[in-house]
Structure formats: structure tokens, C-alpha cells
Amino acid sequence: MAVLSASGREVQQVDWRKRLLHNRTFLGLLFMLPAAALLLTFLTFPLGYGVWISLTDEKVGRGGAFVGLENYGWLFEDSVFWLSVFNTFLYTVVASIIKFVLGLWLAMLLNHHLPFKAFLRAIVLMPFIVPTVLSALAFWWIYDSQDSVISWILIELGLMDETIDFLGDPWNARWSVIAANIWRGIPFVAITLLAGLQTISPSLYEAATIDGASEWQRFRHITLPLLTPIIAVVMTFSVLFTFTDFQLIWVMTRGGPINATHLMATLSYQRAIVGGSLGEGAAIATAMIPFLLAAILFSYFGLQRRKWQQGGRDD
């Protein structure tokens, strides 16, 4: 009996380990561990640390003390901060809408049987491939107050008598940086939507044509609804990229003139790194988080599989 029970316990022990290794939940957690560790180290930590700094009065070269929400209090009273919030929204909303409309239009053009299709697609991708700093410099030159090509062409054509001060006037500067952002962002939208368009079977358009749909009706009743899932993804990313844009502005205007083009990201950088007030800069950056979360939530609900995509079949 004794021998039997001893070996029985041993069997039980081995059994227990074996069972753990066959347990799906346990294995799942085990396999997720490396990825989770990486995420924790490289994403959560900087984010958490950033939020922590925003609660201190840390300066460059000097450790800070915990000051609670004092930085946020300052920001609340700071008209430059509110101007940057306004600029960020204007920049994001206007640029995103125009990128979407032009991008979709371009995607539909490219989806037609065009001559030199591959070549045209490559051209469209150009702004995306050029490094941002380089294209920002190019725009800087295009918008130069003395040597701007646009001014030069307009003057040559006799449409204007003097150069336009693109980046010197607050509203001119705002529209100018928005235009540069649109130029840079369109390829992403256009190419991704093009990929989406190509998943729509041509026979659907033929069926709709025979059903009596005009070109606009085909767009309205076939293209648009079938493209919504992809539009949701593309536009979420586009909004995120635009909202957090930094390079274009920093190279072209540094937030000027008189803070007219400061976005939250550039203002944060200026306060934290240039001005040295790490705590305040971090607070501005942290203030962006709720808006970004809202965009992600929007995409989460927008991305949810539509009813017509559900159903048991995979074909």
C-alpha cells in the first residue's frame, strides 16, 4: 500500500506539471511574456516616466520635486498653450479632411485603367519616400518670403505685383504648413485606399451598372460602403500622425510667427528641450494623450467588423 501511494504521489506531481504545460491559458501567458516585457520597457516606461515628469518641476540638468498638478495649472492659464491647442485642431481637422478627399479621389483615378499606371503610382508615393526634413526644407524654400517659386510664377503670369509672405503672416503660415502636411500625407491615404479599392470585385460594379446605377450611384452605394472599414483605419492613422506632427513645423516655422503655427508637439519640445522646463513640456505632451485616446477609440469602434462582414464563412 505504502509503495503504491508513494509512486501515486509522484505520478500526481509529474501530472501536475504536464497539465500546466498543456493548459492553454498558462501557455498563452508564458508565450506572451517576452513581448509583454518589451512593451513594458519601451512603451509603458517612457510614457509613465513622461507623465511622472509632468508632475514635477524638473529642469534640464536639475532634478525636480513633485509639484502635483501645478504644471497643468500653469498651462490652463497660458494663452500660448491654448493657441497651440487651437492650431493643432485646425491643422488636424483641415489637413485630415483634405487628405481624405484628395487621397480617395487619387486612389480612384489610379484604380482606373490609366496609361503608365505603375509610373503614376510611383509618382504618387514620392512625397512619402522623401525624408520629412528634406521635404520640409523644400517647402521652406517654396514659401520663402523673397525667392518663393509660387510668388515668382504668379508675378510672371501677371496675377500679382509683389511676393506673398507665406510664413511671415499668421494665417498665411497656418495654411502654408497645412498645405505641406497635406502634400506629405496624401500618398499614405491614396495608396492604402487604392489597396482597398482593389479588393472590390469589378463584377459588383458591372452588376450595379446593369441594375441601372450611374457613376455617382456606384460610388455612393458600392465603393463607399465597401471601403468604410479601410477608411476607418487609414483616417485613424492619418489623424494620429497629423495630430502629433512635429518635423514639418519645426523645420519650416519653429512655431512662428508669434506662435501662430505652434502645435502641441512643437510647443512641448520648445518648452522642454529648448527652454529647459522639462516638467512643463511633459505636461503639454501629456495633455495630448486624451485626444489621441479619443482617436483610437473612434477607430476601435469604426474598425469593428460590420455586420455584413460577419457570418460563419471564410470565402
Binding site: S201, S203, L204, E206, A207, A208, I210, D211, G212, A213, Q217, H221, I222, P225, L226, R306, W308, Q309
Partner: peptide
């Protein structure tokens, strides 16, 4: 009217709307 080899049903419309589409137009 044409019936296609792959049926070409509008995936985002219910059966009713698939059938009603041409009449609605």
C-alpha cells in the same frame, strides 16, 4: 438582367436590398 458566375451579390446589403436595389434606383 444578368446573373454572374460569381453571383456578384452586394456583400453589404441584405438579400432584400440586393433584390430591391435596381428598383430603388
Amino acid at each position: 438582367a444578368m446573373v454572374f458566375q460569381n453571383y456578384a451579390l452586394y456583400p453589404h446589403m441584405k438579400v432584400y436590398d440586393n433584390m430591391a436595389f435596381s428598383l430603388k434606383l
